[in-house]
């Protein structure tokens, strides 16, 4: 470095956006209680409506965190605009990454859904499918979870700021579960558990609480859904039940949707 004066580099601009979601993932950012104020010094949190009235609806961003799935036309348009204005787009959570729990509508007659919930269906405008962000724009990084894990969120933000690859493992929940020294609920209690095909990141919470994994983090890399389905059937889980297990929080992820469809066919 020479002695010439350098202006301090501009802080990277962060935007937090919401599509169809429960707000739990962006809440995870506010939930970084120990890091939030430090983070706000490192990055310019330029648009985060849940936390600040200072918004920048039309601005450009170095990193855009997008929560939620696309389930209405205006959300698609907003998403295209966010993509255009952002250097890096990171999806946060199962809704943005695989369509979320609301993707359970996919493949169903939505007008019937609207009638079921709303007194005056005429006012409702919605797309018949809830789709992940990647179905509409290119995504630079997908952070899994329902909700996302705060340590992983910080790791992604840090890695993007420092310029390295986020150290997020695409291994199974079993790896985390074993590292924690949990007793396997599937082997020791015959409890149906999706852990072997689910992406790690939650810290193997469900087995820690004596129940089987229900797939908040979506499929791991090369998930052996068919092998697991076969095994769970041996343990007495009926096809219809299996289909529901795969078609749940991350039911929109192709690997799970396909296995659910297979099981539904078998059931029918």
């Amino acid at each position: 470095m020479g002695s010439e004066a350098h202006a301090p580099p501009a802080r990277p601009r962060l935007g937090v956006f919401k599509l169809a979601s429960c707000d739990g993932c962006q809440l995870t950012l506010i939930g970084c209680e120990d890091e939030l104020l430090a983070l706000s010094e490192k990055v310019d949190i330029a648009h985060f409506p849940e936390a600040s009235s200072r918004t920048d609806v039309h601005g450009r961003f170095d990193v855009a965190l997008v929560e939620g799935s696309v389930s209405a036309e205006w959300q698609r348009e907003e998403l295209l605009s966010i993509r255009e204005r952002s250097k890096l787009l990171v999806t946060i959570g199962a809704c943005a990454t695989s369509g979320g729990v609301q993707a359970l509508r996919n493949g169903k007659d939505v007008s019937e859904f609207v009638r079921a919930v709303y007194a005056s269906p005429a006012y409702i405008s919605t797309l018949d499918r809830s789709t992940p962000v990647s179905a509409h724009v290119s995504v630079d990084y997908e952070l899994r979870g329902c909700p996302i894990d705060k340590h992983q969120l910080l790791e992604v933000l840090t890695a993007l700021l420092v310029g390295r690859r986020p150290a997020i493992r695409d291994e199974s929940v079993c790896m985390e579960c074993k590292r924690r020294g949990n007793v396997c609920v599937l082997v020791a209690h015959g409890e149906p558990c999706l852990g072997p095909v689910v992406h790690a990141g939650c810290g193997a919470l469900c087995p820690r609480f004596a129940r089987g994994c229900y797939g908040c983090f979506g499929p791991k890399e090369s998930p052996a859904t068919a092998a697991l389905a076969a095994r769970l059937k041996e343990l007495g889980v009926p096809a219809a039940d299996l289909a529901r297990r795969f078609r749940s929080i991350s039911g929109g992820a192709p690997a799970f949707a396909d296995e659910a469809a297979k099981q539904e066919l078998e059931h029918d």
Partner: peptide, 13 residues
């Protein structure tokens, strides 16, 4: 491979 879940439980235990 049609039965293995590649979950890593075996190597972990």
């Amino acid at each position: 491979a049609s039965r293995c879940l590649a979950c890593g439980s075996c190597t972990s235990v």
